[in-house]
């Protein structure tokens, strides 16, 4: 018999001794658990954030250690969510850290059968060139009655409902100035 296991370590006795009558607290905590520290306690900083999924807008606390998100929890300060998160909000640490997340720019050439890697700045420059060329090729100055159109129907975009207001603002501003009008997002869907 394990010498450390005495009468006093019998579960029921343990429960009574520690006042943990329901057996869900210290009476059933293993030595291993006792030595664990929650990631939230060792974080370098906690940043207030907002859940990126649905439009309830639950408050989040993002725990950061060594420049990495280590945990995301509900923010009890939020008058809307009062600290709660649903499964999506609770899983958002995985949204940030999941190993399947793409971290590199990729390129598929016309007719290509697979992705190729590409430098980010090369990709952005190629997109800028295509933007300018497509705009030039598909430009419409006037309609058939001579009324101004000043636009391109050759460039379109979809997305925005998961983006920040500031991002949508720059998108709308740039596309409108470029004459690209087919800008849409989930709000139409």
């Amino acid at each position: 018999m394990d010498p450390k296991k005495t009468f006093l370590s019998w579960p029921v006795v343990r429960q009574v001794r520690s006042g943990d009558f329901l057996g869900r607290g210290p009476a059933v905590t293993s030595a291993h658990t006792r030595e664990l520290t929650p990631r939230t306690a060792t974080a370098d900083k906690v940043v207030q954030s907002v859940c990126p999924y649905c439009a309830v807008g639950c408050g989040q606390r993002v725990f950061v250690k060594d420049g990495r998100v280590v945990q995301i929890e509900g923010d009890p300060d939020s008058p809307v969510s009062r600290g709660r998160l649903c499964p999506k909000g609770s899983a958002s640490e995985q949204l940030v850290n999941n190993p399947g997340r793409q971290r590199k720019a990729l390129y598929r050439r016309p007719g290509g059968t697979d992705w190729e890697s590409i430098e980010l700045s090369t990709a952005v420059e190629m997109v800028a060139q295509r933007f300018v060329e497509s705009r030039r090729r598909t430009w419409q100055d006037h309609d058939e009655h001579g009324r101004p159109l000043r636009r391109t129907m050759g460039i379109a975009s979809l997305g925005g409902a998961t983006l920040d207001n500031e991002e949508n603002y720059l998108i709308k501003k740039l596309f409108t100035a470029a004459g690209a009008i087919q800008i849409e997002n989930q709000a139409r869907i």
């Binding site: 295509r130 598909t138 460039i155 379109a156 975009s157 979809l158 997305g159 997002n185």
Partner: peptide, 8 residues
């Protein structure tokens, strides 16, 4: 000719 998908 060109299409941007931004989180959609």
């Amino acid at each position: 000719e060109g299409y941007f998908l931004l989180g959609q």
